[in-house]
Simulated scan of single mutants.
Amino acid sequence: MLLSYEQVRAYELPATEGKHGDPRWSAFARRYGFGPACPVQWEAEALKPAELQRLVLAAVAPYVDRDVLARQVAVSVDQVREDAVVPCRCQSSGHGHFQPSSTAIIWSSGSTHMVCHVRIL
């Protein structure tokens, strides 16, 4: 995921040392007034997790097939009802599991990951 320079400035993200030898750096440095000999970079992970999630979901939303996602969520909800607890690396109640009333469904496609929180009534 890439952030625009405008986003970097708006979120006031800290700069870290960039990769020397990056062929894109000199053009970026000229465009935004940085020293060509001192590359810098900003990490998207420096954003607050909720804001990073919002940006990622907004970026991938136009490409999500809602019908396929709805079918996958329905299958996952059925599995959750059968299993009662879904083990997950995330924390919900501090026990490392999401209880059936607040379940995380993790969907992956290549390097894209989407987490849906489903409330089962």
Rank of each mutant, 00 (worst) to 15 (best):
S109K: 08
E6A: 14
P87D: 14
P100D: 11
F28S: 01
P100G: 07
F34G: 01
L52D: 07
Q99G: 08
A10M: 09
C38P: 00
A104G: 12
A37I: 01
F34L: 05
V118F: 01
E45I: 08
T16L: 13
T103V: 14
C88S: 15
G94V: 05
V60D: 01
P62W: 04
D22N: 15
A44N: 02
A58Y: 04
S4L: 07
A61V: 03
Y63L: 11
Q41T: 06
E51P: 00
G94P: 05
L52I: 01
S108T: 09
V77L: 12
V75E: 13
E43R: 13
V64C: 02
P49Y: 09
A37Y: 03
F28Y: 11
E82D: 10
D83I: 00
L121K: 11
H97Q: 12
G21I: 07
P62M: 06
K19F: 11
G21V: 10
A59V: 00
A59I: 01
C90L: 13
A27S: 13
V118Y: 01
I106L: 11
L47I: 03
H113Y: 10
P49Q: 09
D83W: 09
Q53D: 15
L121C: 10
I106Y: 00
R54P: 00
K19L: 10
S111Y: 04
V115C: 03
S4V: 02
P62R: 08
E82Q: 14
A50C: 03
K48V: 07
R71S: 11
L121Y: 05
G21T: 05
D78A: 15
F34R: 01
G18N: 08
A46C: 13
E43F: 15
V56I: 10
I106A: 03
C88T: 15
H20F: 11
F28M: 07
S4G: 03
A29N: 04
L55A: 00
V68K: 10
D65L: 02
V85S: 03
E43N: 14
R71F: 06
A15C: 12
L121D: 13
F98T: 10
L2W: 02
V56R: 01
S109A: 12
C116M: 12
G33W: 05
V68Q: 10
Y32L: 07
Q53E: 13
V115P: 00
P62V: 05
L55S: 00
V118N: 02
G96L: 08
L47C: 03
E82H: 12
D78K: 14
